[in-house]
Simulated scan of single mutants.
Amino acid sequence: MPGAVVIGAGPGIGRAVAVRFAREGLPVALVARSRQTLEATAEAVAAHGVEVVSRQADSADEAALRGALDAAAAELGTPDVVVYNAAIIRPDAPGELSVAGHQEAWAVNVIGALNAAAHTAPAMARNGGGSFIVTGGMPDPKPGYVSLSLGKAGVRALVGLLAEEYGPAGVHVASVTVAGPVAPGTGYDPGDIAEHYWRLHTQPPGEWQQEVRHG
């Protein structure tokens, strides 16, 4: 049975989203850089009685990411929904980060999402449709978070481009913009944020939203 793929399945939003889809009975494929992270999230997802596939990959490594997505598809089939939640979140002021540092952040925050979509959305379209949802943020750029502000602006542009490319073929491309620091028990509780992903995935085509904002 096709299910959900969560890239960046660490504690916080990634784990909460994976659990949210598992609660609906969808098998879940998890992709993350850390083996420890994968094991913890897989345990939380498996508690809901669904099949779980875990693959370790850095989203900035195109070959590794494509390999992980291929492995997930081989076990679960073409996904119904792909969530791209990977990001490098760190403070940096204007001129503080090196070119290499900006390239590293851009590769994870934006290019990883592009590569994931290019690798999965065509198959989803051929299979009748699905959802590709990216975790956004920084609705207003902040000079203390230059690389993240640039990355999230890039995500917003990317989602628009992907929606134009794959939307007519039935793939709902959208982002969830999280406007503050994620922490349990606050207004940015990951469990509450995860509800947006499920709602976007289940929206009928005539009601598709391209971006929802939390906070």
Rank of each mutant, 00 (worst) to 15 (best):
A4G: 08
A32W: 10
A9F: 01
G14M: 12
E24N: 13
A18C: 03
V5A: 12
G14K: 14
L26M: 11
V19M: 06
G10W: 11
L26V: 02
A29W: 10
G3Y: 00
R33A: 14
V31A: 03
R15V: 08
G14Q: 11
F21Y: 14
V6D: 10
V17F: 06
G14A: 06
R23W: 07
A4P: 07
V19C: 09
V28F: 10
A32P: 09
A29Q: 07
L30W: 05
I7A: 08
L26N: 06
P27D: 04
V28P: 00
R23C: 07
L26F: 15
A29M: 12
A32M: 09
P2E: 01
V19N: 04
A18E: 03
A22T: 03
R15H: 12
A4S: 10
G10V: 13
V31K: 03
G8P: 14
V17A: 02
A32I: 13
V6P: 10
R20E: 14
P27L: 03
R20N: 04
V28S: 07
G14R: 06
G8Q: 06
I13C: 07
I7G: 04
I7M: 10
E24V: 04
A18R: 01
P11A: 15
G25Y: 02
I7L: 15
G8L: 08
P27G: 04
V31S: 04
G10Q: 08
E24Y: 08
P27E: 04
G8A: 08
R20C: 01
P2R: 11
I13P: 14
P2S: 15
V28N: 10
P2C: 05
A9V: 03
P11S: 14
L26S: 12
V5D: 06
A32G: 15
R15T: 14
V31F: 10
A22K: 02
V19Y: 00
A9C: 12
R23D: 08
F21T: 07
V31P: 05
E24P: 06
G25R: 02
L26D: 13
V6Y: 05
G12H: 11
I13Y: 05
A32Q: 07
L30N: 06
I13H: 06
G10T: 11
G8R: 02
A9Q: 00
A22E: 01
F21M: 11
V17W: 06
V5M: 12
A16Q: 00
V17K: 03
A16L: 02
A16K: 00
I7S: 04
V5N: 04
R20G: 03
A9M: 00
R23K: 12
P11I: 07
F21P: 12
R33I: 15
P2T: 12
R33W: 13
I13F: 09
E24A: 14
G8S: 07
V17E: 02
G8H: 09
G8M: 11
R33V: 13
L30D: 13
A32T: 12
V19T: 13
V19H: 04
R23H: 12
F21I: 09
V17G: 08
V6T: 07
R20V: 02
